[in-house]
Amino acid sequence: MDEIVKLIEQWAINKELDQAEPSRQMLKVIEEVGEVSAALVRNDKLALVDGIGDVVVTLVILAQQNNLSLYECVIAAYSEIKDRKGKTVNGTFVKEADLNG
């Protein structure tokens, strides 16, 4: 995964996206998430694979624009959730604090 992330980052540098406005990149993230949603609704596995990949690419670039790495962002998120307690309700994980509230 490290190798492909580096390739994506270099591609972004080549296209000068690394210096672009992050708010514009966030719009691309949202656009790609919408494509994932459409693929799920249509039960289109190929479009889903493409959409998830596109979301990751846009997030790699967004992290890069903010002098972050995808790795450090994922590590931070995992550190936050790893000991989280709760339960899955109707296919969605609900934090313990939200179950009691």
Rank of each mutant, 00 (worst) to 15 (best):
Tyr71Lys: 15
Gln64Asn: 04
Leu68Gln: 15
Tyr71Val: 13
Ser69Pro: 03
Val57Cys: 03
Ser79Glu: 15
Val49Phe: 12
Ala76Lys: 14
Asn67His: 13
Ala63Val: 00
Leu59Tyr: 05
Leu70Arg: 02
Leu68Asp: 10
Ser79Val: 09
Ala76Asp: 12
Glu80Gln: 10
Leu68Met: 11
Leu70Lys: 06
Asp50Thr: 03
Cys73Arg: 08
Val60Glu: 08
Leu70Pro: 00
Val57Thr: 11
Val49Pro: 02
Ile52Gln: 12
Ala77Tyr: 09
Gln65Asn: 08
Ala63Ile: 00
Gln64Cys: 07
Glu80Met: 07
Asp54Pro: 13
Asn66Phe: 10
Val55Met: 05
Val57His: 04
Thr58Lys: 10
Asn67Glu: 14
Val49Ile: 14
Asp54Val: 11
Val55Ala: 04
Cys73Phe: 00
Ile61His: 02
Asp50Lys: 10
Gln64Ala: 03
Thr58Tyr: 04
Cys73Asp: 08
Glu72Ala: 01
Ser69Met: 03
Tyr71Thr: 15
Val57Pro: 00
Ile75Trp: 07
Leu68Thr: 05
Cys73Pro: 02
Asn66Gln: 15
Thr58Ala: 15
Val57Met: 09
Asn67Lys: 14
Tyr78Arg: 12
Asp50Gln: 09
Ala76Thr: 10
Val57Arg: 03
Val74Ile: 12
Gly53Glu: 00
Gln64Phe: 00
Ala63Ser: 03
Val74Arg: 08
Ala63His: 05
Asp54Leu: 12
Val74Cys: 03
Val74Gly: 03
Cys73Glu: 06
Glu80Leu: 07
Leu70Ala: 07
Leu59Ser: 05
Leu59Asn: 07
Ser79Lys: 12
Ala63Trp: 00
Asp50Tyr: 03
Gln65Cys: 01
Leu70Val: 02
Asp50Asn: 12
Val55Asp: 11
Ser69His: 01
Asp54Arg: 12
Glu72Ser: 04
Ala77Phe: 08
Asn67Gln: 12
Val49Leu: 13
Asp50Cys: 02
Ser79His: 14
Leu62Ala: 09
Leu62Tyr: 10
Ala77His: 09
Tyr78Lys: 14
Asn66Pro: 09
Val74His: 04
Ala77Cys: 05
Ser69Leu: 00
Asp50Ser: 10
Ser79Asn: 14
Glu72Trp: 00
Gly51Glu: 00
Ile75Phe: 06
Gln64Gly: 02
Cys73Trp: 00
Asp54Gln: 14
Asp50Arg: 09
Val60Leu: 11
